[in-house]
Design a protein around this nucleic acid. Structure first.
Lengths: 115, 115
DNA sequence: TGACTATTTGGCTATATTACCAAATAAGCA
DNA sequence: TGCTTATTTGGTAATATAGCCAAATAGTCA
């Protein structure tokens, strides 16, 4: 494995990781509606403000969001809305999984009935 | 935050997490070309076979892949190829970030030249 | 059955992530 | 300047993740 190729996958993974947290996903979706300050996002996710700030730092570091200071408040903006297509794809995977679970469940019910 | 809504984001994050690793991304891309056995994937990522097997278990658990046993070898298949659109989106974020870095770099060069 | 191959599991250590609290910064205003 | 508000940073403990080795499983074939 060439170092450059390896690097490519590490870079990609870093961005995915920055999205792979419930609070962060929630915030990304909220930011799609428009810029939000830390306090608004804190209310949304219901965690300590320092925690929220750190989550935002992670996403900023990955280049998913940027921040604009206005007085004492900091407004975070979503950089690319394509992360939402992203989430749509994840939801398709979930639907697929759920459908499969249902199929298994139906099968169980049937075999109980027949036993 | 209602528990069900919270659950939704946790489910999504779990799937993202299952993708958020260089080796796993590499494997997903390889599996797009067709089913592969663990040994082939091991060669690809260059890690211990047990490590590769555990990575595959993570993805299987998230419903991203499924496995078919054929004799002693296990072939892994990609379930949804939409995870690749996903990767395409990540690459767009990366491009965007790189472009920004270049802009900063150019700016630095200029200011050095002028100082 | 016994040996061989492919894969998974268990155990362990090192590292990373997350969350909270407390303290530090930074901007605006009396 | 001193106070207040919004946010970030540092410290720390709990938990999760990743990697390797060794051992266990499972299937094939002689």
């Amino acid at each position: 494995m060439e170092p450059l190729v390896k690097q490519k996958y590490e870079t990609r993974a870093a961005i995915m990781k920055a999205l792979a947290h419930p609070s962060r996903l929630m915030m990304v979706e909220e930011l799609e509606k428009g810029p939000r300050c830390v306090c608004e996002l804190q209310e949304l996710v219901g965690a300590d403000m320092s925690t929220v700030s750190k989550h935002l730092a992670v996403m900023k570091n990955a280049g998913l969001v940027y921040d604009v200071k206005q007085g004492t408040t900091v407004y975070y903006h979503l950089k690319t809305s394509c992360v939402l297509d992203f989430i749509a794809c994840v939801d398709r995977v979930i639907e697929h999984n759920v459908a499969h679970q249902v199929k298994i469940a139906r099968c169980c019910v049937r075999s109980v009935r027949h036993s």
